[in-house]
Nucleic acid binder design. Structure first.
Length: 193
DNA sequence: CCGGTGATGCCCT
DNA sequence: GGGCATCACCGGT
């Protein structure tokens, strides 16, 4: 995928981009092995959104969110977990899409090792779980997602009929905004609803 | 299966 | 010092 079509895909606002990332792939090179998952659940965050890290403006922690699209915003939370976003929108906007769940496709053994021997269904069905499975931590904050060590790869677009749109999970503010998207009936979505 | 809760570090006020 | 875009474990059903 060339850089121009890449930017085309990610430059709209995060609410538009979030459902289009469903069915795309995250490809990770880890210890010489390929680890691949299909994105099955996303959430959009942006600057006029009280639940977003970017809501109160740019800080050292969230600065990657305000940069160009196509980079990884990886943050640390609850003293022990990492979560990853795909930055969207124009530079200066402060918007991103949180990757909440993957369907494991390749490198399941390594994912299982990284996840302390959990069963297949528990490897990547949550935003911090998938980061642990893929070995994603703060070193990948600001990483260019067209570069091989962690790559976002376009998939076939999903028909609207296979996408479910609901409110977001695990937030205190703007809980009524329908900015969570997941693939209907996919068993690797983080929480049933 | 379900809800409650403790773990644990860092950023921002 | 508060609060967190979470998870795993525990006990009761």
């Amino acid at each position: 995928m060339d850089k121009n079509s890449w930017n085309k895909l990610l430059e709209p606002d995060s609410v538009t981009v979030a459902p289009t990332l469903l069915g795309c792939y995250l490809v990770r090179q880890l210890n010489g092995q390929r680890v691949v998952g299909k994105i099955v659940e996303t959430e959009a965050y942006h600057q006029r959104d009280a639940a977003s890290h970017s809501y109160r403006g740019q800080t050292p922690r969230n600065s990657v969110m305000f940069g160009p699209p196509g980079f990884a915003y990886v943050y640390f939370t609850y003293g022990m977990h990492y979560c990853m976003n795909v930055v969207t929108g124009q530079p200066g906007e402060g918007s991103a899409v949180l990757i909440r769940a993957l369907e494991p496709l390749e490198g399941l053994e390594l994912m299982q090792e990284n996840r302390g021997g959990k069963s297949e269904s528990e490897l990547t069905n949550g935003p911090a779980k998938l980061c642990q499975a893929l070995g994603v931590d703060k070193r990948l904050n600001g990483h260019d997602l067209s570069a091989p060590s962690l790559q976002l790869v376009l998939g076939s677009p999903l028909p609207t009929s296979r996408i479910v749109q609901t409110t977001r999970i695990g937030i205190r503010h703007d809980t009524d905004k329908p900015w969570r998207f997941y693939i209907k009936d996919n068993p690797f979505v983080s929480k049933l609803s």
